[in-house]
Amino acid sequence: MYLTRIDPDEKMYRFYRLEIVPGLFGDWGLVREWGRIGRGGRMRTDWYDSEDDAKGARFDLQMRKSKRGYG
């Protein structure tokens, strides 16, 4: 999932990427990458016991980001 927030008046060109990946030991990771469009971003992976937990966390993050103007 790739979200962007663009506001030329504020010179804001941001992205937020969310991806669910399987782990080596039956766990699931939610990979988040964020930063300025056109540049390398920061990355973080949070691990969950099940795919459903990872999907729930992704949905929560998506809702929080949409409230802040990402779409």
Results as ranks from 00 to 15, higher is better:
Met63Tyr: 12
Leu18Gly: 02
Phe15Cys: 00
Asp53Trp: 02
Asp46Val: 15
Glu10Ser: 10
Gly35Ala: 06
Gly35Ser: 06
Gly23His: 01
Ala57Met: 10
Lys67Arg: 14
Ala54Thr: 05
Arg68Leu: 09
Leu24Tyr: 05
Val31Glu: 14
Gly71Tyr: 14
Leu3Gly: 09
Pro22Gln: 01
Lys67Gln: 14
Gln62Gly: 06
Val31Tyr: 12
Tyr70Val: 08
Glu19His: 11
Thr4Gln: 08
Ala57His: 08
Arg5Asn: 04
Arg68Ala: 13
Lys11Ala: 13
Lys67His: 10
Tyr48Cys: 01
Lys67Ser: 08
Phe15Leu: 00
Glu51Arg: 15
Arg17Cys: 07
Pro22Thr: 07
Gly29Cys: 00
Asp49Ser: 01
Gly56Trp: 07
Gln62Tyr: 08
Met1Lys: 08
Gly23Thr: 07
Leu18Gln: 04
Arg17His: 12
Asp52Tyr: 06
Ala54Gly: 12
Leu24His: 06
Gly29Ala: 02
Gly40Arg: 15
Leu61Asp: 07
Met1Ile: 13
Gly56Val: 05
Gly23Met: 02
Arg14Ile: 01
Tyr16Gln: 03
Arg14Tyr: 00
Tyr48Ile: 05
Lys65Ile: 03
Asp53Asn: 14
Gly69Gln: 02
Arg64Leu: 08
Gly23Glu: 01
Asp46Tyr: 10
Arg17Trp: 10
Phe15Pro: 00
Gly40Glu: 15
Trp34His: 14
Arg14Gly: 03
Arg14Gln: 04
Thr4Asp: 02
Asp46Ser: 15
Thr45Gln: 02
Leu30Ala: 04
Lys11Leu: 13
Arg42Trp: 03
Met63Cys: 15
Ile6Asp: 05
Arg17Ser: 10
Gly40Thr: 13
Gly69Thr: 03
Trp47Phe: 05
Glu19Tyr: 07
Gln62Pro: 00
Arg14Leu: 07
Ile6Val: 14
Gly56Glu: 13
Gly56Tyr: 09
Phe25Trp: 11
Gly23Lys: 01
